[in-house]
Design a protein around this nucleic acid. Sequence first.
DNA 1: CCATTTAATGCAACTCAGTTGCAAATGAGT
DNA 2: ACTCATTTGCAACTGAGTTGCATTAAATGG
Lengths: 143, 143
Amino acid sequence: MESNITDILHQHDLKVTPVRVQVLNQLLQSAAAMSHQDISTALADATLDKVTLYRTLNVFTEKGILHKIPTEDRNWLYAVSPELDQTGHDHAQPHAHFVCDVCDKVFCFPIPHASAPIPLPDPGFEVKTQEILLHGNCPTCHE
Amino acid sequence: MESNITDILHQHDLKVTPVRVQVLNQLLQSAAAMSHQDISTALADATLDKVTLYRTLNVFTEKGILHKIPTEDRNWLYAVSPELDQTGHDHAQPHAHFVCDVCDKVFCFPIPHASAPIPLPDPGFEVKTQEILLHGNCPTCHE
DNA sequence: CCATTTAATGCAACTCAGTTGCAAATGAGT
DNA sequence: ACTCATTTGCAACTGAGTTGCATTAAATGG
């Protein structure tokens, strides 16, 4: 697992540093996408400078290790990208983000090809990418 | 049209003030949703305090006159709500927001009942609301 | 295993959207 | 017109996120 993280960093021409290992490890172990603050809190014991964390998240995102999810309360959430994801998701496919209204966790789901694209009234609109945000209760917070 | 605006404000227990009339008028006339800054710029000639505009937009949103759309670059866009909307949209229905990558305008589209809801792998997920964000080129900015 | 180079880190200071407190101004009902 | 609650505008503040720079640490080559 450790060597996995080291490999990922090497494959993206990034030096292996304690901060990067901790952050990536945290995100790989998390079932849900995490915000800057979530990660900050989770790694509170380690002395983690906020600027360093911002930069680490940005570098990971630029390199494609992470992808950003914009939320309704205008935060970014970060989740590990498809090919590195142990959970079997494929983020290269169009996918939906499910946000739990209770625990605020975000989960990613692939969208089956079966479901048709949204039909637009005016053919002049040319859709290139599509993001779907679902709200509700996750299994853990199910009433 | 003016009397329309006055009516809307009265119906929501809001005093009719120059600022509110200007802002609401601007949004009613706009084909696309607008940000705080868009509105600020559009009404530049009028002396419009930024705090007053923030408060006006918040009050309108609380009262249901406007609805907020979160964008990927973490701005809020404001659009006039369904029943007040002259363009025939029905925002009470689930609807999608189309963001033009060129001009950054946002358009709202109803989603036909025909299109099935996203099937989730785990039945424990209970979807309450759904937001769909489309990116691409609008008819005006079509290549 | 040490030296060199290049990138990463941490700190301080800064920016900018958005908020808060408060005094002055204004709208609506009497 | 008078009164009172609401709205407005200003100034000061907050907090997320950024920038510059000096220090430190990781990788590479001898």
